[in-house]
Simulated scan of single mutants.
Amino acid sequence: MDKQQTSPSLLHHLDNLTRHRDSTLLQKSVMDSLIAFVSVDSIRLYDISSSESNFYISLSAIYKKDEPHINEFEAVVKFKPLSEHPLFIEILQNTTSITNAKVGNLYLCCIPIMVNDTPISIFELSRTTRFELTEIDVFRGILAVFRNYLSLLEDSQRDTLTNLHNRKTFDQGFSSLLEEMSDFHTKSEEAQPTELERRSRQYSQQHWLAVVDIDHFKRINDQFGHLYGDEVLILMANIMRSSFRRHDRLYRFGGEEFIVLLRNLDEETAYERLEQFRKKMEAYDFPQVGTVTISIGFTMVTPSDSPSQVIGHADEALYFAKEHGRNQVQRYESLKEQGLVAEKTVHTDIELF
């Protein structure tokens, strides 16, 4: 490819990559860039998790050249032991990439993404012919930009206590979700029926926002002290991460308040996920404190919503749960249909004890 043609196009892709503040959209942009500049049969993105020095991986997204779009795996994350992928063991042990490894009739290039010296994902590119050195340099360069930019985002977007997304990143994450919804609806109107059929399973379901509040948290701090209160918040964040999917968004909104953005789920499944999380919290034996319960209010997200509107609706459902026994999940739309709640002034700072 001519250099004069390549440079502006590469700069365009880098500009598009660094304008994202949402890690999922950022990863999509990286895969789009790799597809544009390297001829591949497929690109696989694997997430990496660790527990007690053991690594686990999960396939997060995949691109195949005979398919028109990148497929994301929206199911609850299923991490498998790293032992099932010997090639990845070598990569993580040496924290280095592997190029042109021959597996069957395919050549693989695998590059780990490290953030703060911790592996978080692996990009695997494959095709039936060897990769040229110039191609390897290109995707190493693109992934280096991605890694450095992701490190900056992680440092600025995480709550220091729980390592969940912090409140200031919520508006950006919510706006990204609305943009994605709007973009899909626009493309759906232009797409052919066969393409819609292929995409409907992934995108036709609804999105939900849940506000989560720890019951009697002030009492925990008063009785046991803030040190144990902080430990409850940290352990709760761990339970949240194990209860929801990679593509859901988890935020600490302040104090004992948390927000969950659930993507591409029908009403019944969204309720089940939130109820399972509530039950996990209730069943957990918190050190010194014992049983801790939570109340949850949730509502549907539509493309015309603003953050204050949707939080206000979930907030009303949360208040209903608090006023009617706590330790429960309530949906705003159901309560409104029954005449149990009416739209009120939006509560931007929830203080429920």
Rank of each mutant, 00 (worst) to 15 (best):
Q4L: 11
T6V: 15
S9V: 12
H12Y: 15
H13G: 03
D15A: 08
T18A: 07
T24A: 15
K28S: 09
M31L: 11
F37A: 00
S42V: 02
S42P: 01
I43F: 03
R44P: 00
L45R: 03
I48G: 03
N54H: 01
F55I: 00
F55K: 08
I57K: 04
S60I: 02
I62S: 11
Y63F: 12
K64P: 00
K65C: 05
H69R: 02
I70Q: 03
A75T: 00
A75E: 14
K78H: 05
F79K: 02
P81E: 01
I91L: 12
N94V: 04
K102Q: 15
L106N: 15
Y107T: 04
L108V: 11
L108I: 13
C110V: 12
I111Q: 09
I113A: 12
I113H: 08
V115C: 11
V115Y: 06
V115T: 06
D117I: 09
T118G: 01
I120Q: 09
S121K: 01
T128F: 08
L133T: 14
T134N: 12
E135A: 01
I136R: 06
D137L: 13
V138P: 03
V138I: 15
F139S: 05
F139K: 04
I142R: 06
L143F: 03
L143G: 05
A144R: 15
V145M: 02
V145W: 01
F146L: 05
F146A: 07
R147A: 13
R147H: 04
R147V: 00
Y149C: 04
L153A: 05
D155L: 11
L161W: 06
L161S: 09
N163E: 15
H165T: 06
R167E: 12
T169H: 09
Q172P: 02
S176Y: 05
K187G: 07
E189Q: 12
T194M: 11
L196N: 14
R198H: 14
R201V: 06
Y203G: 00
Q205T: 15
Q206V: 03
Q206E: 15
D213E: 09
I214L: 11
K218M: 11
I220E: 02
N221V: 08
V232Q: 08
I234G: 04
N238E: 15
I239F: 06
F244R: 01
F244C: 05
R249D: 04
L250M: 11
V260G: 04
L265M: 13
E267V: 08
E268W: 09
A270Q: 02
A270S: 14
E272F: 10
E275S: 14
Q276D: 12
R278G: 00
K280F: 01
D285A: 13
F286H: 12
F286L: 10
F286E: 03
V289Y: 04
G290F: 13
S304C: 07
S304G: 14
S306H: 15
S306Q: 13
V310S: 07
V310E: 09
G312A: 11
H313W: 02
H313E: 05
A314T: 07
E316K: 12
G325C: 00
Q328H: 10
V329W: 00
R331H: 01
E333V: 10
E337H: 02
L340Y: 08
V341F: 07
A342I: 07
D349L: 09
I350F: 10
E351K: 00
